[in-house]
Nucleic acid binder design. Structure first.
Lengths: 150, 150
DNA sequence: CTTGACCCTGGAGTGGCTCCAGCGTTTTAA
DNA sequence: TTAAAACGCTGGAGCCACTCCAGGGTCAAG
């Protein structure tokens, strides 16, 4: 199987596959005479595993941990459970933060009902006030996880 | 006012201020004889405005638009309202996606109740299945906004 | 006159890709 | 047989919004 076929089989992208190889998420495959990467079925399964984890919004570092367990079938899986619990915690914390944000935004939106000149726009006036809302997370502890909506 | 004082006054960070200057969010300030940046009260207000927008999770491009209106008091503010409406849309879409994700994760977590060997761990088994969940957004249209929980 | 706090610039690093130029290889069709 | 299209290769830059650093300069207090 060549890289394009693998990409289709695992619903991925050739650039992403090469990137995963570079950072060690996927092993270096064999090469054909023409220097094309040559993949087998276990590559598909591994990549699918990775993509499924990414679709669950895990970081590549988290996925690296899970892959270790996948590669060590007799290891104790407690860490897997912990990793997932923590990840769930991050996601629900992010939901709470965004829900709060949405309320703030809707309240801000209510400040300007009609089209008018910018200097009278309730939204711009309100943002300009000194009501210092909590800034986005920027301390080192919080920085690892769950930032940004964009 | 020097850059450190401005940072405190606007609950920002000196590096961030220099970054905003570099990309044109803040104007280049006057300099002292010793080449220190020298700021006045309107710099504080502008920076506070920017930080408040960032705390509302707007992108710097969105903020650039809002700043234009702040600088043009007689302009029609309809675009401000639209920008905010769109932003609210992005945030609530992200909340919906994360809520769905949380459900998936909790269901996955239920697959492994007890500590056991990795090869029997319901979580790893489940992730390895071919139940291809929708991958994270990667088309060009969706890419502009609201991606990533980390 | 030294110490320490503050400031300067330019550049690199973060995550997880994505896109590109400028090539080489393989497949398809005429 | 040959031309074109499709696919692959590498190395590097770019995205966002910062953050951190090295290696220096400036300034106020003691």
């Amino acid at each position: 199987m060549r890289i394009g076929e693998l990409a289709k089989a695992a619903e991925s992208d050739v650039d992403t596959i090469r990137y995963y190889e570079k950072i060690g998420i996927l092993p270096k495959p064999a090469r054909t005479d023409g220097n094309y990467r040559h993949y087998g079925e276990q590559h598909t399964e591994r990549l699918r595993f990775v993509r499924r984890c990414r679709s669950l919004d895990m970081t590549l570092d988290e996925i690296r941990v899970l892959l270790q367990f996948r590669d060590a079938p007799d290891a104790d899986c407690a860490e897997v459970n912990n990793l997932l619990d923590e990840h769930i915690g991050h996601v629900s914390a992010r939901i709470a933060a965004l829900t709060h944000l949405e309320k703030e935004l809707r309240s801000l939106r209510r400040q300007c009902r009609s089209v008018q000149r910018a200097k009278d726009c309730g939204i711009l006036v309100e943002i300009g006030k000194n009501t210092s809302a909590s800034a986005p997370a920027k301390n080192k502890a919080a920085k690892r996880h769950i930032t940004g909506t964009h």
